[in-house]
Amino acid sequence: MKRLIKLIAKYIFLILSVVLHVITFFSYLDYLKVLEQIEQDNIPIDIMFGGWTIALSFMIIALYELIVKSKYFKLLIRIFLVLLFIGAILKNVIPIDDFDAGVENTSAFSGFITLILFLIYGLKKIYEKRRMPAAKLSRWSRLK
């Protein structure tokens, strides 16, 4: 039981990401119903669904949180993810002008920055891997 709790605690933000994806999918189904009604009424309006931004950004940040080693940076990311999750859930309830757009823009910007951090992390790992054989050779040559 203790192992299960540790596993859930480690992957809680990925679980919350799945919850956000399910909520976004149901709001997309509502969007399709509204779009169908608009087409039946011949109203010349072009609307787009932009709800996937928060869910995808949340998932990207949650994945980055898993690879971060620093305890304090991980805590900062977790606090930000909790605030982003609460904002995503309550974006239609909070009576602030353009609050939903603010939440979407914040999550999109954060997701983009996280993608850059992923790229830096990946390039660093590739660079370390390529340098490894040379380091092994120098160690062996010192022993002889």
Rank of each mutant, 00 (worst) to 15 (best):
K2D: 15
K2C: 01
K6I: 03
L7H: 10
K10G: 05
Y11F: 14
I15M: 09
L16H: 02
S17I: 00
V22T: 12
I23E: 13
I23Y: 10
T24G: 07
F26Y: 14
F26V: 14
Y28L: 13
Y31D: 09
Y31I: 08
E39I: 00
Q40A: 12
Q40M: 12
Q40T: 03
N42A: 12
I45D: 07
D46A: 09
G51Y: 03
G51M: 08
G51E: 05
W52V: 04
T53Q: 14
T53M: 12
I54R: 02
I54W: 02
I54K: 01
F58S: 01
I60T: 14
V68K: 03
K71D: 13
L76E: 00
F80W: 09
V82F: 11
K91P: 01
N92L: 09
P95L: 05
D97V: 15
D97R: 09
D98T: 11
A101L: 15
T106G: 05
A108D: 04
F109V: 05
F109K: 04
S110P: 00
S110G: 03
G111I: 04
G111V: 06
F112D: 00
I113W: 02
I113P: 02
L115F: 07
L115E: 01
L117R: 08
F118L: 03
F118I: 06
F118Q: 02
L119F: 15
I120R: 06
I120Y: 13
Y121P: 00
Y121W: 07
G122T: 04
K124Q: 12
I126G: 02
I126C: 02
Y127C: 01
Y127G: 00
Y127F: 11
Y127T: 08
R130K: 15
R130W: 13
A134T: 13
A134E: 12
L137K: 15
R139M: 10
W140V: 05
S141K: 13
K144N: 07
